[in-house]
């Protein structure tokens, strides 16, 4: 049995209509983990759908990727190809929700040019937003403590500090955890770091302090907190700008 475009579509319309769509937010949050698991699942389902049950020999344990794939296929045993297709579509629909719209627009195009449920109408303009590009700044080296600060994971951060990781550890750009917490706007983590005696005036490789970051990112409450902890409003970065110079808002606590 081959897996045809038509077969996929037919399955999609049934599975889409009965299964409620998870909320966008939930989909987003669980996206990364879900995606990884889904890849293997999809592989197994694909193989069942196109070739039937797995009869090949298990690859060597050293061949991690091939073995994981074989396992994913083998695990499904004698699942009927139809069921595999249905599950395949269900997963695709979850990972790529817009695919459902695409399939609706597909239906639309088959019999006429109806608007369907497609976000893109049959005619007219298109809403476009940035293509998500992978990080190009891949030379950057971060420690776990920076990641915690960036992600706002206060408890983990405390554990790192208690385990002896210096609170002013630098990443390869000279940023401290405080820089990262300010950059991402995690007030509680900023406060926690300050209470753990983080250097409030630590400069990154471009001479910017956490207060520079707070001003640039217009994080008023955090900036005020930093000033309260004696952040210097007049420290100049490599380009000669102090937080005071960069501040375009009327924050009296900075200007004073």
């Amino acid at each position: 049995m081959t897996m045809t475009g038509r077969g996929l579509r037919a399955r999609s319309s049934t599975s889409c209509s009965v299964r409620p769509r998870p909320s966008l937010r939930r989909r987003r949050r669980t996206g990364a983990r879900r995606r990884f698991r889904s890849q293997l699942e999809l592989y197994g389902l694909y193989k069942i759908a196109t070739e039937g049950p797995c009869t090949k020999a298990q690859p060597s344990i050293l061949n991690v990727s091939a073995r994981a794939k074989w396992n994913a296929w083998h695990r499904l045993g004698a699942m009927p190809p139809e069921e595999a297709m249905e599950k395949y579509i269900a997963i695709i629909s979850e990972i790529y929700p817009s695919w459902e719209d695409a399939s609706t627009s597909k239906k639309k195009n088959v019999d006429a040019s109806d608007s369907g449920n497609a976000a893109k109408g049959p005619m007219g303009p298109v809403f476009s937003s940035f293509v998500h590009e992978e990080d190009s700044d891949s030379d950057l080296k971060l420690d776990a403590i920076h990641v915690c600060a960036r992600e706002g994971e206060a408890e983990k951060l405390v554990r790192h500090i208690e385990n002896g990781i210096p609170v002013n550890s630098r990443d390869s750009e000279g940023r401290t955890p405080l820089h990262w917490a300010v950059d991402r706007g995690h007030y509680n983590v900023v406060e926690l770091l300050l209470k753990k005696n983080a250097d409030v005036n630590a400069k990154d490789n471009e001479g910017q302090t956490a207060l520079h970051y707070a001003v640039l990112c217009e994080r008023e409450a955090i900036a005020e907190l930093l000033v309260k902890y004696n952040a210097d409003t007049n420290l100049k970065d490599e380009e000669g700008n102090s937080p005071n110079d960069l501040c375009s808002s009327s924050w009296t606590f900075i200007l004073s």
Binding site: F130, H132, E134, D183, H212, Y213, L216
Partner: peptide, 17 residues
């Protein structure tokens, strides 16, 4: 608002600059 994304290795402050 999700129109663009901030890469994990990029800072908001550098993006703004």
């Amino acid at each position: 608002v999700g129109f663009s994304r901030l890469g994990a290795r990029m800072t908001m402050s550098r993006t703004i600059r």
